[in-house]
Write a protein that binds this DNA or RNA. Structure first.
Lengths: 351, 351
DNA sequence: CTACAAAATGTTACCGGTCACATCTGCGGT
DNA sequence: ACCGCAGATGTGACCGGTAACATTTTGTAG
């Protein structure tokens, strides 16, 4: 009675069943599934319906085997915060399993430009595409090498938009602008700023957004209230120490990321200042530390997971296209950020 | 001149080339690659050499297609710390790409036991194996459902060893024991302990290790110096507050994880205590917060990434075996932890 | 030394798609 | 009407492995 179920897995619907159901050949179904070959709209609709009814999902193994187009995509990183990394991975993995791509990971710490070139060239041989989170996406060496190998690349959150590189990011300028307005609305005018690491373009964008908002409100930017930081907790400690050691204290501190904001809170506490009554503190990124410290930080949420997923989608589309036509398009996705209001902001003391 | 390179990718070595090189049939090579069919040692060696010389790697797509044995393995989690999650993912992904398995992720937050059962049953239909990190691995509902579906499961860091479930973990008891000895060696005798969340078996193990080390040293455990915590920063704050609000202060605090240890440091600072001069503080897990706070925490490092990778390996082996024979074996891997000495421990003040 | 079971190896078909190419439409030009 | 061309669809072969079965070799008992 068993027909030919010998080597077949569970309920997996195959392309042949769909084809039969739709009354067309498997090849036509394949064409429809892969977007755009020459298929008549009527036929396409027919196939789509069959796909929907049977709940068909192409078998990734068969697909990549037949197409000889391994869908391995690499995600390389250098010592990011673990929070950032985990969100990145969750997002990328979601995208990968959705599209049945295989994700490979690589950590490239402390490489010289030459080493980066070599690694990139090497990588190019084994994967079909690369996702480049910061700060790697700022490396000219890697990008050029990868592009020379004609491998699609999508950068994440590269501050500056480059005409030759697809990118998924938030609008750092506008986000910082909004956050500054938020502080201004509470009545703050003596707002200190802790800058981010100078090797990341996003840092500059955030500072520009801060400056612009202040200028628009007619508030002058006091140079002494701007400190250089490097995104680390330690650097935040030093910057805050400098800021709160002055005679005229600021009423608010805008740190370029959450780690430095948390450090600022810690320094404030040590100096007997209550947050937010005596000092408002805001951060950027909405990493876990934002909700770990007390009071919880008002911050900007970057949807990193969604960005990674989106990057993966872009990459896969780009891979399929490039295998078809020769021209590559660069995309620039700007995704929405969110201003998360929590407990670290209040009106200034003697407003 | 191009022979038949039409549909072939780059340099990918196929099983046929290896077979030809070794002078055997592809099937024999396949048998060798898959471990243990009946192959003569001489032949095996022959094949292995060819594999090495040609640097052959089986094509995962072809393999899973032919075997109709999709190697999708699921990793499900509930709101773990992002640090933990990212290490977990890095490790699992490393293992997956190494073995050419596909990893799928799922977050099961706030599910009732019934919902867990349903989700598990559902999951069982689409994946070949499951990795279960804490605290999910403590759920009877999930485990039983998955086992009923005959899906291999590997738990990570499930404190209690269960005869019916493979597990990769560290020896929490011994780790806590070592840490306690470390404090004793510095001359501490009034050592406070902040317990972990009672729903995790590892918490109990850590406390037991602490108690045992104290007893062996002839130091009595003072009940007032043991506080219940819940692994969160907040709970650590409260526990430390209780501990440091007493008249006779402890000279050291052993927190069951880093978050609570960091909280303890924060409380100490707020009370004007210098760490480690006035108070030593140690944590557990070596999460990023351990190196974020100042002073950096002495703690126990759990090689989570390695554990995840190992879990994946176990799982894949288990999957292949179970498809061959019917009996399933349960394994219990105990991996080595490390005592990481940093700056939060010093001899007690007036020793 | 033969016979025969068990072990080692080879053969064939097939997994589920996609490629190159063959075939079949419909349409306009002359 | 006829031809031709381009777009839409179908036809086999094939991607790189592995399950099942066929075949050969090996070990060994009679």
């Amino acid at each position: 009675m068993v027909e030919r179920t010998v080597r077949r897995k569970g309920g997996a619907v195959t392309i042949h069943e769909v084809a039969h159901h739709a009354g067309v050949s498997p090849m036509t179904v394949s064409r429809v599934m892969n977007g755009n070959a020459n298929v008549r709209d009527v036929t396409r609709e027919l196939v789509m319906r069959a796909v929907r009814e049977l709940n068909y999902t192409p078998n990734p193994a068969a697909r990549s085997l037949a197409a000889a187009q391994g869908t391995r995509i690499a995600l390389i990183y250098t010592n990011p915060s673990s929070a950032y990394l985990s969100e990145l991975l969750v997002g990328a993995l979601a995208g990968a399993s959705h599209a049945a791509a295989q994700l490979v990971l690589d950590s490239w710490d402390d490489k010289s430009a030459a080493a980066e070139r070599a690694a990139a060239r090497n990588l190019a041989k084994s994967v079909a595409g690369v996702i480049l989170p910061p700060p790697l996406c700022e490396s000219r060496a890697i990008c050029s090498e990868l592009q020379q190998a004609k491998i699609p690349v999508v950068a994440i959150a590269s501050g500056r938009f480059r005409a030759d590189l697809s990118c998924v990011r938030i609008d750092d300028f506008r986000a910082a602008h909004e956050m500054t307005e938020h502080l201004l609305e509470h009545g703050h005018t003596r707002i200190a700023f802790i800058k981010g690491h100078p090797n990341q373009t996003a840092s500059a964008r955030r500072f520009e957004g801060f400056q612009a908002a202040l200028q628009e409100a007619g508030v002058s930017v006091e140079n002494a209230l701007v400190q250089q930081g490097y995104f680390s907790y330690r650097s935040g400690l030093e910057a805050a120490e400098a800021l709160l050691g002055r005679k005229r204290l600021p009423t608010a501190i805008f740190a370029s990321n959450d780690d430095m904001a948390a450090a600022a809170i810690s320094v404030a506490h040590r100096r007997g200042l209550d947050v937010p009554r005596d000092l408002s503190v805001v951060g950027f990124d909405d990493t876990p530390i934002a909700t770990t410290v007390w009071p919880e930080l008002t911050t900007i949420r970057q949807p990193i997971a969604a960005m990674a997923e989106s990057a993966l989608g872009l990459l896969l589309r780009s891979i399929r296209q490039s295998s078809a036509s020769e021209n590559r398009v660069v995309a620039d996705h700007v995704v929405a950020h969110t201003l998360v209001k929590r407990d670290s902001v209040a009106p200034p003391r003697k407003a």
